[in-house]
Simulated scan of single mutants.
Amino acid sequence: MTEWQQRPLDRVYPVVFIDAINVKVRDGQVTNRPIYVAIGVTLAGERDILGLWAGDGGEGAKFWLSVLTEVKNRGVQDVCILVCDGLRGLPDAIAAVWEQTVVQTCIIHLIRNTFRYASRADWDRMSKDLRPVYTAPSDAAAEARFDDFAEVWGTKYPAIVRLWRNAWSEFIPFLAYDVEIRRVICSTNAIESLNARYRRAVRARGHFPTEQAAIKCLYLATRALDPTGRGRARWAARWKPALNAFAITFEGRITH
């Protein structure tokens, strides 16, 4: 496991997703602890799981600086877009390690968090009203569409309006990209299939004696993923239009 966690990585990743899965660790008493996973999309369009790190839920810039510095020291010189779900301290750490990297709020998580505040009876209509915001052709158009959304839903669900306003500066970079790049950022297949595998592995164990035992469990689940490589090949076949869009948008940076 140590060898895998310290292995050399690619020089450039067009996109890196950082996500978390909560595990139960028995440390005197059973508590929830986040294990963070970084998933890179390679220049070949393949999913590359860069590593696993244990946190305590109160991570700040210092924690993320150590994680990202470790990733950089393993050979990663550039990341075009890093997608995360509002992790405190992460944007500051990214700026210190890869100053050109764009921090992008995970659109899927933002939409899911929206529905947590809404009655299920309103989900369909709210989804229809929200779609013009994240499919808008520009940030000005998105702001106008969100004003329309807030006018309809703001009185009933003020927390949803606040959620989007607070995430707005990390949301709007998404709107400047070609549709092919938007699809990569919004594609949850690679992340969701990994998380589903992780959740099954964690449920089978219940709780863990130590953080290291939890990481080892997730490591074994990681190594068991897609043993034939067919899933990666299918995903890579849809990658070429996105790679062309990345090469144009991030000119001079998409190199082996």
Rank of each mutant, 00 (worst) to 15 (best):
R200L: 09
E170M: 14
A190C: 07
L194H: 09
E170V: 09
E180M: 02
F208Q: 02
I248V: 14
D178L: 00
R234E: 12
P173Q: 12
R234M: 11
F174H: 06
F171A: 05
E170D: 14
R234H: 10
A221H: 05
P209Y: 06
T188W: 09
T249M: 08
C217H: 08
L175H: 03
L243E: 04
F246R: 04
R183C: 00
I181L: 00
N195W: 14
T228Q: 12
A221L: 06
W235C: 07
I248A: 14
N189K: 03
C217N: 11
N189Y: 07
L175C: 02
A236W: 13
A196G: 13
L243C: 04
R223S: 12
T188E: 05
T210W: 06
D226V: 06
F174I: 01
F208C: 02
A245L: 05
I181P: 01
N195M: 15
R200Q: 15
R182F: 01
G206T: 02
A236E: 10
R238P: 01
P209R: 12
A176V: 02
H207Q: 09
R200P: 03
A213Y: 03
S193N: 15
R234S: 08
F246Y: 07
V179D: 04
L220W: 07
L225Q: 15
L175I: 00
R200S: 15
E180P: 00
I191M: 14
A233N: 08
R230D: 15
R199I: 04
P227W: 13
A224V: 01
A201Q: 10
R223H: 07
T210I: 01
E170H: 15
T222V: 01
R199C: 05
A201H: 11
